[in-house]
Write a protein that binds this DNA or RNA. Structure first.
Lengths: 244, 244
DNA sequence: GACTAATTCAAACACGTGTTTCATACTTAT
DNA sequence: ATAAGTATGAAACACGTGTTTGAATTAGTC
C-alpha cells in the first residue's frame, strides 16, 4: 500500500530520454506480458515467467508498473490504442451499400483473428476476460465491444427495416458476431473436429466470405418475408420458415 | 505422491451403505464444486472455498477424491453422464425431415444454456476449459463436442448436398454452432450491449427459433444456388449474394 | 571526475494455496 | 461391550505467488 519508493510507475516527468520513449526493459516487459497474458490469462500468468521471458528482474514489474494489475491494465490499454481494430471501424465508415459494408466488416474482423498465421493475442485477452473477468473487462467492452455492436445494430437494423433496439435486430447482430467470435473462443474444439482448419490468410478470407454469405442470405430476404410490419415492432416477426 | 493412507478416493468396494450411494459429504462436495468450478474455473477455484460452501473440512477433498484434480475430473465425469445433453442427442436421432431435426437440435441446445433462468454450469465449465485447458478438456471434447459436431456435419452435409468433410459443410456447421455458443461464452458482453436479454424460457425459445431460421435460410437455398457442382467439390461455391 | 538520480539486482518477506498429519468421533461386525 | 475400519477435525507443512527491501550498478549533469 505504501508507495514510499520512487516508483516511476506513475511518474509524471522523467528528466531525460523521454523523446524516444524507448525504455528498453519497460517496452520488452509490455511486449512479453501481452503474449503471456493472452494465452495464460491474468491470474495464471506469473510475474516471474514474464520477467524471465523479458530478461528482466522480478522487481522490474513493480518498479515500472506498480504491481501486476498495473502491468496488465497497461497492456490492455496499449492493445486498445493499437491499429488492430481500426480496419473494422473504418470499414463501417465507408460510403457503400450496406451489404458491402457488412461484408468488409466481417472480413476485417476475421483477419484480425490471425495475424500472419499466429493468432492475434489482443483478441485472446478478451476471451480470457469473458471467462474470468478482471477490472479491465469493462474497459474492453466499452472500447471495442459496444461501439462495434452498436454500429452493427444500426447497419443491420436498416437492412431489415427494423429499429436498432428491436429484438430481431439484436438477434441478427448476435448471429453475425457469434459466427465470428467462435473462431477465437472455441479454437481447441475447432481444431479437434476440423483438422484441416489451418487459418491461413486464404482460408480466413474464405471463412469471412462464408459468414457474410450465410448472414446476408437471411438478412436480405427478411424484408420480403415479413409483410408490412408496423413500425412499433411487435415482439416477433412471422417465421420465415419456408421461404421457398 | 505416496498414498499410504487408506484413501478411499479409489476405493473399489465399500463394505457398508453402498446401496443408497449416499455419502452425504461426498455428494455435497460434488454439488458445490460443480457450481464453483463453473464460475471460477479450475485454477481460480480454491479447495477451501468449496469446502466452506459444502460445510466440510479441507481434508475431505483429499480424502474422498485424492486431490483437487480428482474432484474436478469427477465433477466433469458426472456432468457428462447427466441427462443434460441427452435432449440434443435424441433430437438428432429422430426420424423427421432434416430441417425439423436441425431446428429441434438448436432448441434443445439453447434450452441447456439456461436451466430455469440460471445459466447451466455444465456449459460454463466447457467455456473455462477452452480458455484455460486442463486434462479434462479432451474428455469434454470427445464426449460432447465431437459427437455433436459429427452428427451435424452429416445432417447439414445431406441438406446442402456435399460430403461431411467438405469445407463448405464445415463452415455451415461452425456458423450454426457459433450462433449458439456465443450465448454461453460472451455472456458479459451480451448483457452489456443487450440489457433486455433476460434469457427467460420464452426468450430462449425465440432465440433458438431465430438461429434455426437464420441458418436454414442459407442452407435450404444453397442447393438451388450452386449449379451442378462436381462431387469432388471445388473450393468455393458461387456466391449466393442476390438470391432474389 | 564527482555528485545525483534512476534503474537493476539478489534476497527476503508475507500470504494463499494444495496437501498431509495425527488425533478423535463415529459406524459396524463380532 | 469390544475391536476394527471409516470418516472428520484442527493444525501444520511445503511450495509458489506477488511484493518489498536495500545495496549495487548505471546514466546523466555539473
Amino acid at each position: 500500500m505504501n508507495k514510499d519508493r520512487s516508483s516511476p510507475g506513475l511518474k509524471a516527468a522523467k528528466r531525460t530520454r523521454r523523446p524516444a520513449d524507448a525504455d528498453p526493459t519497460r517496452e520488452k516487459l509490455l511486449d512479453v506480458a501481452g503474449r503471456i497474458f493472452a494465452d495464460r490469462g491474468y491470474q495464471a500468468a506469473t510475474i516471474r515467467e514474464i520477467c524471465i521471458a523479458a530478461s528482466a528482474n522480478v522487481a522490474a514489474v513493480n518498479y515500472h508498473f506498480g504491481d501486476k494489475l498495473g502491468l496488465y491494465t497497461e497492456v490492455v490499454r496499449q492493445s486498445l490504442h493499437t491499429a488492430k481494430h481500426e480496419a473494422v471501424q473504418s470499414a463501417l465508415d465507408r460510403l457503400a451499400p450496406p451489404e458491402e459494408i457488412l461484408r468488409d466488416v466481417i472480413r476485417a474482423r476475421m483477419r484480425n483473428i490471425c495475424r500472419g498465421g499466429r493468432p492475434n493475442w489482443h483478441l485472446r485477452i478478451l476471451a480470457h476476460e469473458l471467462a474470468q473477468p478482471t477490472p479491465a473487462l469493462r474497459q474492453l467492452i466499452d472500447k471495442i465491444g459496444r461501439p462495434l455492436a452498436n454500429r452493427l445494430l444500426d447497419l443491420i437494423g436498416r437492412m431489415i427495416g427494423l429499429p436498432a433496439d428491436d429484438e430481431k435486430t439484436r438477434l441478427c447482430v448476435v448471429s453475425a458476431m457469434g459466427q465470428m467470435v467462435v473462431y477465437d473462443f472455441a479454437d481447441p474444439l475447432l481444431k479437434s473436429v476440423w483438422p484441416e482448419l489451418k487459418m491461413t490468410p486464404e482460408q480466413v478470407d474464405r471463412i469471412a466470405d462464408h459468414i457474410a454469405d450465410f448472414s446476408l442470405s437471411y438478412i436480405q430476404n427478411f424484408r420480403s418475408m415479413t409483410p408490412a410490419r408496423s413500425i412499433k415492432s411487435t415482439k416477433r416477426a412471422v417465421k420465415p420458415r419456408a421461404s421457398k
